[in-house]
Design a protein around this nucleic acid. Structure first.
Length: 218
DNA sequence: CCAGACGTTGTT
DNA sequence: GTCTGG
DNA sequence: CCAGACGTTGTT
DNA sequence: GTCTGG
């Protein structure tokens, strides 16, 4: 399971834009890749929820550098409570990761075909995520990062891949953000409703290669 | 004891 | 920070 | 987009 | 400096 993307109203892949807090430039992306700063939703200290821009790839607070995060883009829900990298975040720093779809690849190495997954009844939805705050040893600005939980695939996802991201029901958002460990544990399960998957160009998601903005026909 | 890992997936 | 392996 | 690599051989 | 990988 890897990158997510955003669609327009017609279901075509589009770039999405957001303002980077650091320099206020407008960044345009076709796809979210590991290490990209991208939107997540957390419980706000003052109550309610807050959108924030975090870097994809969780870096635990005790890490020596950011490199650890490039490998922690996903966390297995089956082991998240035991793994040193994730267990503290799982207790108190959960987040929602918004998306309109995600890519998955299938096939032999060198001939892998990418597929775009969507939820027919939910134009936008949320993955279950965790976040962390890492402080550089040299006293630089803290860096906030996140990861996406994975689980076993449902019948749809299983046709393409052996894992899938944890997709939350809308009614479970608050529970995921603020519930106890016992309350959120049962939420980490395969998505129960219908999903769609379409083949897309192998160049999708890579802006450097003039990414086509439209899904290819089935 | 101390050094080293701490993770998931397997594409472009 | 904490666990594991040597 | 941006961080990171940029390379090959292989025994003291 | 430029290409690649995430």
């Amino acid at each position: 399971m890897c990158s997510r993307y955003f669609l327009d109203d017609d279901g075509n892949i589009i770039s999405y834009t957001f303002r980077v807090p650091v320099d206020d430039r407008v960044k345009r992306r076709y796809n979210i890749a590991p290490t990209n700063v991208s939107p997540v939703i957390r419980a706000a200290p003052e109550g309610g929820r807050a959108l924030a821009m975090l870097r994809w790839g969780l870096v635990p607070y005790w890490a020596d550098d950011l490199k650890v995060g490039t490998r922690a883009i996903n966390a297995r829900s089956e082991t998240v409570e035991q793994k040193p990298t994730f267990r503290e975040a799982f207790k108190t720093r959960r987040c929602l990761v918004p998306a309109t779809g995600y890519f998955e690849w299938k096939g032999d190495p060198g001939h892998k075909q990418p597929f775009a997954f969507t939820l027919p009844d939910r134009p936008m939805f949320a993955f279950a995520g965790l976040w962390e705050r890492w402080k550089p040893r040299d006293g630089g600005d803290p860096v906030e990062t996140y990861t996406i939980l994975t689980t076993e695939p449902n019948a749809y996802a299983a046709t393409i891949h052996d894992r899938m991201p944890v997709i939350l029901a809308e009614g479970d958002y608050d529970r995921w953000l603020s519930g106890t460990v016992a309350e959120v544990r049962p939420l980490m399960r395969p998505y129960a409703n219908e999903m769609g998957a379409r083949t897309v160009s192998k160049l999708v998601g890579n802006p450097r290669n003039d990414v086509p903005e439209v899904l290819l026909p089935d």
